[in-house]
Amino acid sequence: MPDVGCWLMAESTEGTDFRFMRPANDNAIGKISANGEITIELLERCLDRLAIAMERAPQGGEVYLPIFERLEAEIEAKKASESTMARALRRVRR
């Protein structure tokens, strides 16, 4: 199995900054779209890869729990946002 890549998240005054760390064999998890949007599918793949890294971690992976929880929260926030937008668009179309 290839090395695990990871998205790194950094908080700043301008919001959340996502940066991709490629695995040693350059096998990227996914790409950010041309407009810079990070999709739910991409976050889900990152969560999968992080779970693999947690399983392989010599210290048991507990050190990665905050990152795992943050990715889960980002996914839920994106889902909620998409749901809100869909509701707004349905209202316009009726």
Rank of each mutant, 00 (worst) to 15 (best):
M1V: 12
G61F: 01
R22N: 08
T39R: 14
I52R: 12
F68E: 09
R91M: 06
P2A: 14
A34I: 10
L47D: 10
N27I: 09
G5I: 00
D3G: 11
E69T: 05
K78S: 02
I38A: 05
V92R: 15
F68L: 04
I52C: 06
A80C: 04
F20Y: 13
I75H: 01
E69Q: 03
T84N: 11
N25V: 06
R56T: 08
S33E: 10
I40W: 09
E69W: 01
M9V: 11
A86H: 02
F68A: 07
K78M: 12
S81E: 12
Q59G: 14
M9K: 05
E74R: 02
R70T: 01
R94S: 11
N27T: 07
I38R: 02
E69D: 07
P23D: 15
Y64I: 11
G36R: 00
L42R: 10
E76A: 15
L50C: 09
A28E: 13
L8Y: 13
K79L: 09
L42M: 14
A28H: 07
L50K: 05
E37R: 07
G60P: 04
P23Q: 11
L43N: 02
S33G: 03
P2F: 14
T39I: 04
L89A: 07
P66T: 05
L43T: 03
T16K: 05
R87W: 03
S12I: 05
D48H: 04
K78N: 09
L47C: 08
I29H: 03
C6I: 10
E11H: 11
T13W: 07
T13E: 13
S33K: 06
G60H: 01
M21E: 15
E76D: 15
G30N: 06
A86Y: 05
P23H: 08
T16C: 03
E41F: 09
M1A: 14
A88M: 13
S83P: 01
L71G: 00
Q59F: 11
D48F: 07
